[in-house]
Every structure is written in structure tokens, then in C-alpha cells.
Nucleic acid binder design. Structure first.
Lengths: 216, 216
DNA sequence: GGTATTCGTGAATCATGGCTCATTCCTTGT
DNA sequence: ACAAGGAATGAGCCATGATTCACGAATACC
């Protein structure tokens, strides 16, 4: 063998792969999953369309990678928030509030991965995303709320958050942002039987910043 | 002019148009909006593909008609249930319960019109469907719950119902059906601040049948 | 410099699915 | 029975967007 990948090349390839993924993410965040097409992605990453296929064997795989990357980010954020909290109730509140605030902040992206029209190929990846979020919620729900079926309740809450905050009928982002998030989270928590979370200081005074910036 | 449409022909044409719509609806209910394609619809209606275009100028229009038909049915059902109820609270409960039970019963169809992947062309029709449902809920929400922003709360509740009952993560239809609906509705009502609806007889003892059959 | 190997390219190919239209079949009214 | 349309047909046309591939450019090692 006369040719072996050197470190420099390996780094360049990795960077390019990351660039492709970043381009896909940017397009999804700006114009939805629909806009994640090979040509635009390649264009945005500064390469030719065919080159994309040297890094991802099919568009499906690219989208899956994108979804997984977002999933990882959100799940980690939820975990971090929940683990910081002192007890089961505040842990659950933290998880919900974190998800709500982050989803709101990445509205378009999250919507493109959950509610927006998309082709069937990418649907299983999207389903996994939702399932991952439900799982994270359900894990905190179990100890905190024993009177409800945790997976069902978690699914219901996820729907409430997504539709109320990132769906097309959710209020536009802008003034009163904090109130919007607060209202939806309040409905979710009350729905779970956590009454008057606000007065108990579980929500407003939480140490987990509501205005946390979106991840890279 | 030697030819003028006779009543018999007019009736046949109307029947055929209805057949096309029914075929589209059946396909959507069985396999989702994705499966509503000209060829299969025509096939199912027992006509040629080209014939569909004598009744609907474009596929978009066909889908819009389908969505509107479903919308009308659901909205009417909600209205009827809400109007039968004695007061604001029970009216709201009735609206939510009716929507929940019917959505559950037409699970695939409702999901195909709200959550499932679809092409962008048909998206505005789907959005109108959701908006119509939110409107119906918001109308009952206003008088019943003054402490919340009605549209936002209605949107949130719709999300909870859809995700908890008809989404891909909702429990499969089967045994415990009543419990599933009950749980999700309970979460929704509690979220709105209607505490312990069950004990107040607003839900279980309501005169609006939970097991109402799906419309034609 | 020479050569084996990998990388990048983008025009061409393919698949899908909506839509058109020349043709054929039916209705109508005389 | 027949002429004048309307209705139905379905084989192709067309647009979109993913995927391929033959070729030239880079890279690694001698």
C-alpha cells in the first residue's frame, strides 16, 4: 500500500463531515427539514453534491445523524437540569421547564423534527427523537407522580409543550416570551397534579436558567 | 345544443365525486395522507386516474376537500356536545372529552391530518384543521377559565390530546381504552385548573357518550 | 519524479408521482 | 339511427430531487 490516510487528511475529512452536518442543521433550523436537500446542503457546505455521498451513503443517513445529534443535545440538557434539582418534584419541573425553554429557543428546528411535514424515510428517526424526549420525562415522572401512567403522562406532556410552544399555532416568539413558556409549563405541571408550582418556587426560582442559549 | 345534463347524469357525477372523496378518506384512514395518491384513489373509486381531474382540478384541492370534510365533522361533534352541557365548566369538559374520544376512535385519520409527515402543499389545509379545533376549544375555555390565555391554553390542550391519544407514542388501541382517554382528559382538565373533574361528575357521568362511533 | 490510491466533481441517470390530452365511449334529442 | 357534444380513459409527459460514476485533482510513499 502506497497511500495511507495521514492525520491531516483525517482531520480534514472529519471537519468536512461536521460541516455537512452543520449545513443540514442550519437549513433545518431556518427552513425546515424539507429544505435539507443534497444540493443545498452541499452548496452550503461548500462542496459538490456528489461529495456528500462520500460522507453519508444516503440522505436518510444524513438526516438520521442530524436528528441524533439534536436528540443527544436535548437529552443531555434535560438530564443535567434534572440532576441538579434536589427532589423528585423539582427534578420533574426542571426537566419540563428545560425542555420547554430550549424547544422554544430552537423553535423551527424542534418543530421540523417533530411536527412538520416530512417524508416517510426520515420518520423513524423523528419518532426516535420524540421517544427519547418522552423517556427523559417519564423517568422523572415516575418518582414524582405515582397516580399516573408515566409513559402516557409523559407523552401527553410532550404534546402539550410542543404544540403550545413550537407548533404553528403557538404564539410568535417575541415579547412576553417568559410568560408564554411559563403558562404552558404551568398547564403541564398542573395537569400532572403538581399544584401551584409557581408558589412553591419550583419553577420561577429554579436555578436552571430559562434563557439558556441554544446549543452549537 | 343537443346534449344537456339530465338529472340522472348529474346524480351519477355527484356520486362519483363523493366516491373519490370517500376513497381518499379511506386511504388516509388506513395508511395515512401519504397514501392518498391519484392512482390509488382512482383505483379505489373504480375509475381511471385521469378521471379524478374531471372532479378535482388538482390533488391539493382533493386533499383540501377531504380535510374540510373531516374538520366539519369534528367541529360539529364538539359543538353539539358542548351545547348540551349545562354550564361553562361542563361545556369545556364535554368539548375536550368529545374531541378526545372521537380522535381516539379515528386515530389514524386524525393523525394523518395533524401529525404525520405530509407534503407541504397540503400543509395549509392541515393547519386549518388544527386551528379549527383550537378555536372550538378556545371558545369554551374563555368563559370557563379566566386565568389563562384562551388560545394558548387551547393549543396546549390540543397538543396534549393529540400526542397522548393519536400520536405514534400513544398507547395502542385496545383494552383499557376508557382509562387511556380518561387519563389524558384528566391531565388536560387539571392543567386548565379544573380540579378533580372526576369527583365532580363532570367527566364520567357526563351525558355525552365516550364510546360514540366514528362518523361516516 | 513516479505511481498507487483516495478524494472531489457535477453532469447524467433514475424513480416517483402529479398531470395532460388525443382518443374512445356514452348521452341526448331529433 | 345519427349528429353533437360531454365523459372517461390511460399512456405518456414533466418536474423534482436523490443517486451514480467516469474522470481529473490531491495525497502518500518510494
Amino acid at each position: 500500500m502506497v497511500y495511507r490516510q495521514t492525520e491531516k487528511v483525517r482531520a480534514r475529512l472529519a471537519a468536512r463531515k461536521a460541516a455537512i452536518l452543520a449545513a443540514a442543521r442550519a437549513l433545518a433550523a431556518e427552513q425546515g427539514l424539507e429544505a435539507v436537500q443534497i444540493a443545498p446542503v452541499a452548496d452550503r457546505a461548500g462542496i459538490a453534491a456528489g461529495t456528500v455521498y462520500r460522507y453519508f451513503p444516503a440522505k436518510t443517513v444524513l438526516v438520521e445523524a442530524l436528528v441524533e445529534s439534536v436528540t443527544r443535545g436535548e437529552v443531555e440538557a434535560i438530564r443535567a437540569a434534572a440532576e441538579t434539582a434536589p427532589g423528585p418534584l423539582s427534578s420533574l419541573s426542571a426537566a419540563i421547564l428545560t425542555l420547554a425553554a430550549r424547544a422554544r429557543r430552537q423553535r423551527r428546528l424542534i418543530w421540523s423534527l417533530t411536527g412538520e411535514p416530512a417524508d416517510v424515510e426520515t420518520d423513524s428517526a423523528r419518532l426516535r427523537f420524540r421517544a427519547a424526549l418522552v423517556d427523559e420525562l417519564a423517568v422523572r415522572l415516575g418518582p414524582a407522580v405515582t397516580s399516573l401512567d408515566a409513559p402516557l403522562a409523559a407523552t401527553t406532556v410532550l404534546g402539550a409543550l410542543l404544540e403550545g410552544l413550537v407548533g404553528p399555532l403557538a404564539p410568535p416568539v417575541g415579547a412576553g416570551e417568559r410568560d408564554t413558556v411559563q403558562t404552558v409549563v404551568l398547564i403541564a405541571l398542573r395537569g400532572l397534579g403538581i399544584v401551584d408550582a409557581r408558589a412553591r418556587g419550583l419553577v420561577v426560582q429554579a436555578p436552571w436558567p430559562v434563557e439558556e442559549p441554544a446549543p452549537a
